[in-house]
Nucleic acid binder design. Structure first.
Length: 295
DNA sequence: AAAAGTCTCAACCGCAACCAC
DNA sequence: TGTGGTTGCGGTTGAGACTTT
């Protein structure tokens, strides 16, 4: 289907939606305008932000002379008027990145959007809901867990692509090497409750319960979380904590550490995906020696 | 041609995190 | 430490565009 091009005109011109009057959702600001923005409002908002800069959203409408709430102004600027916003067709490589990021991060749209230049969280969320989730379902993949639909019931395990390095002892957790350039430069190990029962008797963290994951640096437990997505956040928290302890006064490194770590995970995913495709080609060529691996 | 159904996406809403005091 | 205001996020809605019957 041909994509519409909202950037060619204001949304109200495009859609003809009637503007309403509302309260911006919190009972305050009665009499404020709601609904689609007009070209005039867009121009007022754009020129004000060009002149005064972003931020102070609550005061902005009054100062700019707009009958909108600050929240609405922020949204309009972030998702539509910002010069850096790239609109229109999402390319195959962007789609691939969204899929891999979603597999790693779940519905953290702003985090995903932050790594795709020019795309907004709203756009990616819409694209996911209207295209990608349906695409995955049609391929027999659960869009929430990224597992085959028949196996999607158990959501509290890492995705099958989460690598367990070949040089680690069996059943002792998932190793996540941290980028050496960051202050968080040790191997982080994620262990499960079962792993603790089998291999770490006596060292079970007091608050750890069945189904939990535990993030380790060596033998010192540092945090516990439930589910794979919790685990990802846990690793970031862990990095942040280490950075603040070991590198006080260098706050930028916190984000750098997570960013580098995320890059390494994305690259691992890409490599893994590439390896899978190569293996499928080899299997197709030599059915007799096919590995049978599907993860 | 028109009615019904589906798709798309801008915008809204509620909530939680963050920050200043 | 508690409180109130602000900001940002993710889920949801709703109306026009488009497709199917």
């Amino acid at each position: 289907m041909e994509m519409r091009n909202p950037s060619s005109s204001s949304s109200s011109e495009k859609s003809g939606k009637k503007a309403a009057v509302g309260t911006c959702g919190n009972g305050k600001g009665v009499g404020l305008k709601k609904g689609p923005w007009t070209a005039e409002e867009d121009e007022i908002l754009s020129s004000y932000i060009r002149r005064e800069g972003e931020g102070k959203w609550r005061m902005l409408p009054k100062r700019a002379g707009l009958l909108r709430c600050g929240k609405s102004c922020r949204l309009r600027w972030m998702n539509y008027l910002r010069p850096s916003v790239k609109r229109g067709h999402i390319a195959a490589d962007e789609e691939d990145l969204i899929l891999r990021m979603h597999r790693l991060l779940g519905n953290r749209w702003s985090l995903i959007a932050g790594r795709i230049p020019g795309r907004t969280d709203n756009e990616i969320k819409n694209y996911w809901n209207t295209h990608l989730s349906k695409k995955l379902i049609s391929l027999g993949i659960d869009p929430t867990t990224h597992k085959p639909l028949l196996l999607a019931n158990n959501t509290n395990k890492p995705p099958s692509s989460t690598k367990i390095p070949s040089n680690k002892p069996p059943s002792t957790g998932y190793h996540f090497p941290m980028p050496s350039s960051t202050s968080c430069n040790k191997n982080v190990m994620i262990t499960t409750y079962d792993d603790h029962l089998q291999h770490r008797q006596g060292k079970l963290p007091m608050t750890m319960m069945e189904g939990d994951y535990c993030c380790y640096d060596g033998d010192a437990s540092c945090s516990i979380g439930q589910g794979y997505q919790d685990m990802m956040l846990m690793i970031k928290d862990y990095c942040d904590t280490r950075s603040s302890h070991e590198n006080i006064g260098n706050e930028d490194d916190d984000d750098d550490a997570f960013s580098s770590f995320l890059n390494s995970l994305i690259n691992e995913e890409a490599e893994h995906h590439h390896h899978q495709q190569q293996q499928q080609v080899l299997d197709a060529k030599n059915p007799a020696t096919a590995s049978g691996s599907s993860s």
